[in-house]
Design a protein around this nucleic acid. Structure first.
Lengths: 156, 156
DNA sequence: GATTGAAGGTTGAAGCATCAAGTGTTTGCT
DNA sequence: AGCAAACACTTGATGCTTCAACCTTCAATC
């Protein structure tokens, strides 16, 4: 017996799907045009920039960017080729790879940030009041948790 | 002067980004595994199934699936090759292409629907009350509108 | 001290999405 | 009637994501 969605749920779902289908390409598009990077690239740089020593292990960066290790590995390889990050083996454990934001990567991130943040603000937060923001944080957080628990994505 | 995000907005944004980064691949993964299609394929079939004659013009289907015409064209070509939809020229206007869901496409959609809906329910709606659903509909709808207005994506 | 299994990453191939450029059609203007 | 511009797609190339397979390294067990 399938538990179908009722009308309210269906409308909510179609709107959420709309956000995923429209917002993500729009962000990529702005960052690609203005800063020659994808939104995911930006997230990687941003997460590194906030970490001690601007350094994280691959698996930790993967968690913080909500990505599979595989996806991250491909992207970090690209970012390293551009000189925006560098990889090096962890001193403590031979199977761990560390990633560090370079000085150049930091400059690129700082240059990209204003335009990106302005875009996010204008596409997401303009016209939302504090209550809406709180609701968004709560509901989106809830969805993320459900997905993590389902853990269908053991992910390679 | 960049208007940065405050702490609440930042947390809300990171959670929303998390939804986009995690939900979308998870849905694709379930549909790919169980029904050999992507989430976007499913949306196309679903939108056609609800239309008069199970038929729409390409540009209208693009609007309803929140996609660019280019993306849609590639995907419809694939779906047509599988025999799930068929294209034919519009009688009224020579530059319009119509897409129709075939009987086979309908069967495939009906077979995929229960698993997909169950996945959406379990990853999004489980644990949300009616107020949350209403808030989600409202906020996500708002974001979609902002993006459409910005219309940066004139899209090819 | 071997073996087994799991953890942490990397890689290559295949499928997708995007962008820019193209084709053919219709509209509007003169 | 003729021409330019806009519309409705389609196409090919490029880059990104996923999946499955692989390679090391570490941990636990015997």
């Amino acid at each position: 017996m399938t538990r179908w969605l009722n009308d309210d749920e269906l409308r909510a779902w179609l709107n959420l799907a709309g956000v995923m289908l429209k917002l993500s390409p729009t962000l990529d598009s702005q960052l690609q045009r203005d800063s020659d990077m994808t939104h995911f690239d930006y997230l990687c740089l941003a997460m590194l920039s906030e970490s001690a020593d601007r350094t994280l292990r691959m698996s930790e960066l993967a968690v913080r960017t909500n990505a599979s290790l595989s996806r991250l590995s491909h992207v970090v390889k690209k970012l390293e080729a551009r000189g925006w990050v560098e990889r090096f083996p962890c001193a403590d454990s031979g199977r761990v790879t560390m990633v560090r934001l370079t000085a150049e990567g930091w400059r690129v991130l700082v240059a990209a940030a204003p335009g990106h943040v302005e875009t996010v603000r204008s596409l997401v937060f303009d016209g939302l009041d504090a209550e809406d923001v709180a609701a968004l944080e709560r509901i989106a957080g809830h969805v993320v948790e459900l997905i993590e628990q389902a853990g269908l994505r053991t992910v390679t």
